[in-house]
């Protein structure tokens, strides 16, 4: 999300500053089965991205003010949405119709289909096309990622007031940023993209659970724990 102009908004500046550097995929070489190799590489990447995401969440202004129970609930509900904002962002500029999970892990439709991820491919291309058409800025992308986590509608909320303040802080930051650009409709448009993001994340979670159960694809402990929370 590198950007030459430092946002004057404190929250967005912090989000830009703490946005983790993109991870590279470690190519799995434990099998000769190409589609299984793709899946294992992807799952390893996801597991490491999750670890980074948890560290990142702690740096979102307001997140550490939530109770530990609520921090856990938000991450358990919203982790896939937050990760997919990153995938959609990276895939915007991709040549052809690839999904860019990492700089060295770009999957086209045929590769996704072979790996059992045809459904996910379609949903993620739809999301990517939407953000590309909106010409999302780096400030918007990092804020949307934080908003997705804050708005993840966890089942049980320990301290609703703190959560509301956390959400309001991010919402205000986005509104202030868009007002400074004289873009009065952008905040609403971005928030209106959240249902598609939720739907895409649900499909992604189902796809990985299905692969784990039906094809017995082994998953790392953290990824499995987070999928189980779904």
């Amino acid at each position: 999300y590198s950007h030459p102009v430092i946002s004057r908004n404190r929250v967005i500046s912090q989000l830009l500053l703490t946005e983790p550097a993109p991870l590279a995929a470690n190519q799995d070489d434990s099998t000769n089965d190409g589609s299984l190799r793709t899946l294992l590489t992807l799952c390893d990447l996801l597991n490491r991205e999750l670890l980074v995401l948890i560290g990142w969440a702690k740096q979102i202004p307001g997140f550490s003010g939530l109770s530990l129970v609520d921090q856990m609930s938000l991450l358990q509900s919203g982790w896939m949405e937050a990760l997919l904002v990153g995938v959609a962002w990276r895939s915007q500029g991709a040549a052809g119709e690839e999904l860019v999970f990492a700089g060295n892990l770009r999957l086209d439709e045929a590769q996704c289909r072979a790996a059992g991820l045809a459904d996910l491919y379609e949903a993620l291309r739809h999301l990517t096309a939407k953000y590309k058409a909106m010409n999302l800025s780096p400030e918007e992308a990092v804020t949307l990622k934080a908003v997705a986590l804050a708005n993840s509608d966890a089942d049980q909320v320990d301290c609703p007031d703190s959560l509301q303040r956390f959400q309001d802080g991010l919402h205000e930051a986005l509104q202030e940023y868009e007002a400074s650009r004289r873009e009065q409709h952008r905040t609403g448009r971005l928030l209106m993209s959240l249902p598609l993001l939720r739907q895409t994340a649900d499909r992604a979670v189902q796809a990985f659970l299905r692969l784990h159960r039906r094809r017995c694809v082994p998953l790392h402990k953290l990824l499995l724990e987070m999928l189980d929370a779904k």
Binding site: I54, K58, L68, K221, L222, E225, M226
Partner: peptide, 20 residues
């Protein structure tokens, strides 16, 4: 909490190594 122990450990910034 027991079921989600890795997440719990990571959020608590545990200094003990986390088995991922």
């Amino acid at each position: 909490k027991e079921k989600h122990k890795i997440l719990h450990q990571l959020l608590q910034n545990s200094t003990s190594p986390v088995d991922l």
